[in-house]
């Protein structure tokens, strides 16, 4: 099983170029344990920069764990150990001199449930800037500009421009989730991690967020965990299929869905399990 996994995990020819690029995400033989339980087993993947990569697989396959490893969010759980390497923008993020604060500035995350802060819409968007700016580093006009730019980027500006002082927690769920994406942008992140960002949204809101993702392609390296096969197919350029903590298959989405190389991938995307 191990050998077959390893062979099918080899990058396809179409992905080979990514290995040399230093803006993407590169994992080498990455394993992660929660105490005695090994959640990730020797994951090696090369995620292409400026693309949307979907992580798919049945519940408990480790896709969320892998996603959370990219900005080291797993570490606050007790008993988490890792081995192997994760390189983002050419930098090993597991190196001891890496500051989590700086890492998370560049690698932002969007959660399943929208989690706007209990502040105004405006304050939510500039929250990150204020965290990193030090006191009074930005004048009001610059702040306003950053807020407008971020909100326009997520198609939220027109809906909220007249009530930026309103509480973010009172927005509709879809708008909250867009705001949660917008609030990452003023920090100019390189990578956006999304953990089932649409699972709390209805079909219409999901479509809106997917449209937004489509517009963000090329500008950010986006990794998205999803349970929704159709969504993975619609939004992603590349797809990683995981099972029981192992990376089973990684390839361009179109190819992976039409012509999966691994029997288990085929069975999963056909809906035979998961």
């Amino acid at each position: 099983m191990t050998t077959s996994t390893a062979s099918s995990a080899e990058p396809r020819p179409g992905l080979a170029a990514a290995a040399s690029a230093d803006r993407g995400i590169l994992t080498r033989d990455f394993s992660l344990w929660y105490g005695g339980f090994q959640a990730l087993i020797g994951v090696s993947a090369s995620i292409r920069p400026g693309r949307i990569t979907a992580l798919i697989g049945p519940s408990g396959c480790g896709k969320t764990t892998l996603l959370r490893s990219f900005n080291r969010m797993n570490e606050r759980f007790p008993g988490v150990r890792t081995s192997g390497q994760i390189t983002i923008m050419g930098q090993n993020i597991l190196a001891p001199e890496v500051s989590l604060i700086e890492l998370r500035k560049s690698v932002g995350m969007v959660f399943q449930r929208p989690n706007p802060l209990p502040l105004s819409i405006y304050d939510n968007v500039v929250f990150g800037l204020r965290l990193h700016g030090g006191a009074g580093s930005l004048c009001r006009a610059e702040e306003k500009l950053a807020v407008e730019k971020a909100l326009r980027e997520v198609f939220l500006w027109d809906a909220v421009k007249d009530r930026l002082g309103a509480r973010a927690t009172e927005l509709q769920l879809e708008q909250q989730q867009k705001l949660c994406i917008a609030r990452l942008l003023p920090l100019r992140p390189e990578v956006l991690l999304m953990d089932e960002p649409c699972s709390a949204l209805d079909a219409e809101a999901t479509a809106a967020v997917e449209e937004l993702l489509d517009g963000m392609r090329r500008r950010y390296t986006i990794v998205i965990v999803t349970h929704n096969m159709a969504q993975a197919r619609r939004v992603s350029d590349d797809c990683i299929y995981m099972l029981s903590g192992r990376l089973v298959e990684h390839g361009p989405t179109a190819e992976l869905f039409i012509n999966p190389r691994d029997r288990r991938t085929e069975e999963y995307i056909e809906g035979r399990y998961g």
Binding site: L100, E102, K105, M109, R113, N115, P116, P118, G128, L184
Partner: peptide, 12 residues
């Protein structure tokens, strides 16, 4: 969720 949101923006 509030704390997580902040940590993910690189807050100490």
């Amino acid at each position: 969720a509030f704390r997580q949101a902040c940590w993910n923006l690189g807050a100490s």
